[in-house]
Design a protein around this nucleic acid. Structure first.
Ligand code: MN
Ligand code: MN
Ligand code: MN
Ligand code: MN
Lengths: 228, 228
DNA sequence: GGACTAAATTAGGGGTACCTAAAATACCAC
DNA sequence: GTGGTATTTTAGGTACCCCTAATTTAGTCC
């Protein structure tokens, strides 16, 4: 598999992320994600299809091929190992590791990534809770619900937040929420109102989480799991 | 100072290295160094001159301006800190750190470099003995002589070798020479013949160093310093 | 089914960074 | 000083990756 350009790597990553639902990825969504004009995406899509990294149905959308998916997961592995290394070894803030990893992912060799993974004890999740694909391209996507969907009176565990909105990450950090934090939902106001949660820790005060943020914080339910 | 492209950074580094003698750097030498056609260098030289990173006298050569030199030293600092980090933290072989650093130097932020420098205790030299410029752009070039020029019967200390020839580095490593190794020259055959050296270590056998290698190993004289 | 609208593609163009081939220049020998 | 040679530059072209504007297509509403 020949070396792919920085742009191609970023396209593949974006197509993987947008296509996780299983639906074909539309040109416009891709343009939005990579911050590029839709016409530019059309051009790149032709090249990616020629390289057989994606399949393209004109005017419908694109999907990763087997080798495109493998390449995407390799880059995502690099990105997430790098984020974890920066956060763990250099105590780097979780709101800025993403930008640094976004650059380094294209320059770091496979060898460096594996040395870092080794030094970290082969971590399973990056600082934002995203699963790290294994070196042979396996990834376990988690089944999570937004905090806003955790029923009142049940316990939830914060597991994942997107690494792309640095401002949001700083705010979450200021609330002292990190991946693994457990809470109980004690109130959820109707009409997309805020959610109020309470930590287990002694002396913890209730915390009010606005609806938009409660949508961004993905959680598992612990304790009495309420089947859908 | 705007962000410079990967190519521009490599050109500036090469011009700095080739221009250390003080003479203007010729287009052809630059083309050779960065493995590019001379015509390509002419094009890039025009751009660098427009950016006022170099001054160019057509058909004569180029020289770094003040800001060009500052930029070059910043990249060289990144490169050498990265090499030192890889070698120290990941026990990376000194013959392959160069290739990895050559890529990472364009992607690593100033912030990451400074964190690495800190973790290393602000090293003064990279694994090949090259001096690391300070964050504010100072560098102390050493005054060294090739091993082939260390007089017979005097002691020398191996201080510096180019990081660009991986095969040579592997051979030097197999001789168990590292930066700081001391030796006494016990023989030097005429007509560019080999040099025979002897380590201080107990039970050390004499080692024969071919002339070309003895030219590549740069040393200081210790003990009775023979004034030129 | 035809018209309208939103989305995607094509057309045309720019900057970067490389190439080969041809022309210009500098340097050296005589 | 002229000629020849080595070096450098210019000319013309390609690939990559982006842009805006114009065109084409798909989907929806009546
Ligand atoms: Mn990236
Ligand atoms: Mn992340
Ligand atoms: Mn480089
Ligand atoms: Mn080095």
């Amino acid at each position: 598999m020949a070396d792919l350009s920085r742009s191609i790597e970023d396209y593949l990553k974006a197509i993987y992320e947008l296509g996780r639902s299983g639906l074909p990825v539309q040109t416009g969504a891709l343009a939005e994600e990579i911050a590029v004009a839709p016409a530019s995406v059309s051009g790149m899509v032709r090249r990616l299809a020629e390289l057989e990294l994606i399949s393209h149905t004109p005017y419908r959308g694109v999907e990763l091929t087997g080798s495109g998916r493998r390449a995407a997961l390799q880059i995502i592995r690099r990105h997430r190992i790098l984020e974890t290394y920066l956060a763990t070894v250099f105590a780097w803030d979780w709101d800025t590791v993403h930008a640094e990893a976004e650059q380094l992912e294209h320059a770091a060799s496979e060898r460096l990534i594996e040395r870092m993974a080794e030094a970290l004890g082969h971590p399973q999740f990056d600082p934002h809770g995203a699963p790290i694909p294994s070196a042979d391209g396996h990834i376990e996507e988690q089944d999570l619900v937004p905090m806003a969907a955790v029923p009142i009176g049940t316990e939830g565990e914060f597991r994942l937040v997107s690494d792309e909105d640095a401002e949001l990450l700083r705010y979450v950090a200021s609330l002292e929420f990190t991946v693994g934090t457990r809470f109980e939902v004690i109130e959820a106001l109707p009409f997309n109102g805020p959610v109020t949660v309470q930590r287990r820790a002694q002396g913890a005060q209730p915390q009010v989480i606005g609806f938009e943020l409660a949508q961004a914080l993905l959680c598992t339910r612990v304790g009495q799991a309420v089947a859908s």
